[in-house]
Design a protein around this nucleic acid. Structure first.
Length: 588
RNA sequence: GCGUCUGUAGCUCAGUGGAUAGAGCAGUGGCCUCCGGAGCCGCGUGCGGAGGUUCGAUUCCUCUCAGACGCACCA
């Protein structure tokens, strides 16, 4: 379905053409002077030079041409050369009736036939999720949903950190504690136990302990290194133990991501990429890209146009081991082989900008992905505390995600209990839903690429530009529609009526932008745009609500139009928050 | 040192080559015989600084100041 801007431009284009001007001048934008008009066209000023004509003249000519157009109730050519447009109420309500009838709110499936791989996880196994994982999860999940909604086939890959020294540390520490286990018996030939020798909480303790030990105990460090190598070489006992670690961690991660309403289609890890390293290296050699530098094998990625020095990408350490870039390149190889994606999007901390610059360049040089496949790095900023420094616990440590969520839920719970008389049990459930909305909206409403201040008190506030405010608005609408259905026994009408006053018109105009908002948010990889739009919808609705007595309205036709309007507001807002990754309760 | 990013109201953040740069919070003044007042309607000092391009710059370019981050064998 066309956007309202496209529909306006459809009217403008023939008018410009009929006056002898280029159609590319017929560009419509939202008015920046709502007191004067709803939409505007600045093409006359852009064309003034081209046609050696005063812009106001051009604007006037075009205005005369489109004045009779049913889409517009008012057309003005103003001062320098603005073309000010006011849409007719019938046009707007007619458009919205179509949007309301459309399954997808008029959003075109621009991604039909396109496959996107999203990489937004990156947690390490055997380590709890902490606030550092929060942004990737929240932003990535929203983008996944936006891409799906716009018709893309999306594969979300968690890309676990499950390889390298950390695994050796855990294995060696387990060895130290339980040397009698069969995993460590060289001559063991039986089945390894089905039950893991540790729980998730054991693992969460084992890793930091082992990490600390390796720094003090050189012998232990060497043993851990050796264990890593043996695991990578496929030692059966270590492989079995590794499988336990992975299984337990993944179960725990699924649970914790689940609490965030975040899910993945693929649970691949760095370990899964290992088998693609040889073939990937072969390609680098074939293309003569690999060369030795200071003992390491590297690929030069410097380009003539660079303003800064891009160091060579290290593919193999001087001891022959692979590292971060190697794994990422091998992973890209795997993705290309398995999915032939049209795009790969990484949602990762912006401090890794250089790494992805290097990896992308190597993959282009080596043809690891097709030239037409887009490689995008969405580097998100740091989550800071109120002091503007990276977010920490009161003790100065890294905040576990579970604790953060629990704190927020508790704070929301207390507010709910203050105001409403719902049962404590009910309040708990509602607090989780509202808490998640507060957390996610607090994050997503900021530009992803910028650092932002994480302020729980502000996010969970039920006033202002917050998640809870959006939810409150939805709950309020649900309540009205519920009452309407109860008292009249009627299903909501589907046809909207032309707006009868300003606040109704304003609300309708905001709703008419829904498909642009969703599509734009996706194309710009910018969930914060959707946040802002939904906030505008909520504000417009609350103003409308304040001015109209919906359930008391005696004119049945008018009332039905309003009910249809409310249903659409609800649909837009519920769809919107779903795309952001949270939901609204029935009451709060 | 080199490079990247950021700098908008007291605070937290949006925004745009165009007409008067917007929200929220905080402050303050109104609005409940009424569908959920967790709401609505008011009240204001601001684009770090200096040049340049342009009919027009907060937006683009250069310089400059401040902060964050990054500069090969961690991920």
């Amino acid at each position: 379905m066309k956007t309202i801007l496209q529909m306006i431009e459809d009217e403008l284009r023939p008018a410009f053409a009929a006056c002898g001007y280029d159609e590319d001048l017929a560009k419509a934008v939202i008015s920046n002077r709502p007191d004067l008009c709803e939409y505007q066209c600045n093409g006359a000023m852009a064309g003034a030079k081209r046609y050696h004509k005063a812009p106001i003249m051009i604007a006037q000519e075009v205005a005369e041409k489109i004045a009779g157009c049913p889409a517009f109730s008012k057309v003005d050519a103003v001062k320098p050369g603005f073309l000010n447009l006011t849409l007719s109420p019938e046009f707007v309500s007619g458009y919205l009736t179509q949007v309301a009838a459309d399954e997808r709110l008029g959003v075109d499936p621009i991604g039909a036939g396109k496959t996107m791989v999203l990489d937004y996880g990156g947690p390490n196994v055997a380590k709890p999720l902490h606030v550092g994982h929060l942004r990737a999860a929240i932003i990535g999940e929203s983008l996944k949903r936006l891409y799906r909604y716009t018709g893309h086939t999306v594969l979300a890959d968690i890309h676990l950190g499950d390889w390298g020294l950390q695994m050796g540390l855990i294995i060696e520490e387990t060895h130290r504690r339980h040397p009698e286990l069969p995993y460590f018996q060289a001559d063991y030939s039986g089945e390894y136990p089905a039950e893991a020798p540790f729980t998730i909480s054991d693992l969460e303790e084992i890793y930091p302990t082992a990490s600390a030990r390796s720094k003090e105990d050189a012998e232990f460090a060497a043993a851990a290194h050796d264990a890593t190598v043996r695991l990578q070489q496929g030692d059966p006992g270590y492989t079995a133990l590794f499988a336990h670690i992975l299984r337990i961690s993944v179960a725990d991660l699924k649970k914790n991501y689940g609490k965030l309403n975040v899910s993945f289609d693929l649970w691949y890890g760095e370990s899964d990429a290992q088998k693609y390293i040889p073939v990937m290296l072969e390609r680098l050699k074939e293309r003569n890209l690999l060369h030795e530098s200071q003992g390491a094998m590297v690929v030069d990625v410097q380009q003539d146009t660079d303003t800064k020095e891009i160091p060579p990408c290290i593919i193999q350490k001087s001891d022959g081991a692979s590292l971060y870039a190697t794994t990422d390149l091998a992973t890209l190889w795997q993705r290309e082989q398995d999915f032939h994606p049209d795009g790969v999007l990484y949602v990762v901390d912006k401090r890794q900008d250089m790494h992805f610059t290097q990896v992308f360049r190597v993959s282009r040089l080596a043809g690891i992905i097709r030239p037409e496949t887009s490689l995008t790095f969405l580097g998100f900023g740091t989550m800071n505390g109120r002091d503007g420094k990276p977010f920490k616990t009161r003790e100065g440590g890294v905040m576990r995600l579970e604790h953060l969520i629990a704190d927020i839920d508790q704070a929301v719970y207390e507010r709910i209990m203050e105001n409403r008389t719902v049962s404590a049990e009910e309040a708990q459930k509602i607090a989780q839903i509202v808490g998640l909305a507060a957390l996610k909206y607090g994050d997503l409403s900021n530009q992803a690429t910028k650092n932002y201040v994480f302020d729980v008190d502000r996010f969970i506030s039920f006033e202002g530009n917050t998640g809870p405010y959006l939810l409150y608005t939805i709950v309020r609408i649900k309540s009205i529609l519920r009452k309407y259905a109860e008292t009249t026994g009627q299903a909501p009408a589907s046809a909207l009526r032309p707006a009868g006053d300003d606040s109704e018109k304003d609300l309708q105009l905001v709703l008419a932008r829904v498909n642009e908002a969703i599509t734009g948010s996706c194309l710009d990889i910018a969930p914060h745009r959707l946040c802002q739009y939904l906030y505008e919808v909520a504000n417009a609705f609350n103003s409308f609500y304040h001015d109209h007595r919906i359930l008391a309205e005696e004119d049945a036709e008018r009332q039905q139009g309003w009910i249809a309007l409310l249903s659409l507001v609800q649909k837009v807002m519920e769809t919107g928050i779903d795309l952001l990754g949270f939901e609204a309760p029935e009451q709060m």
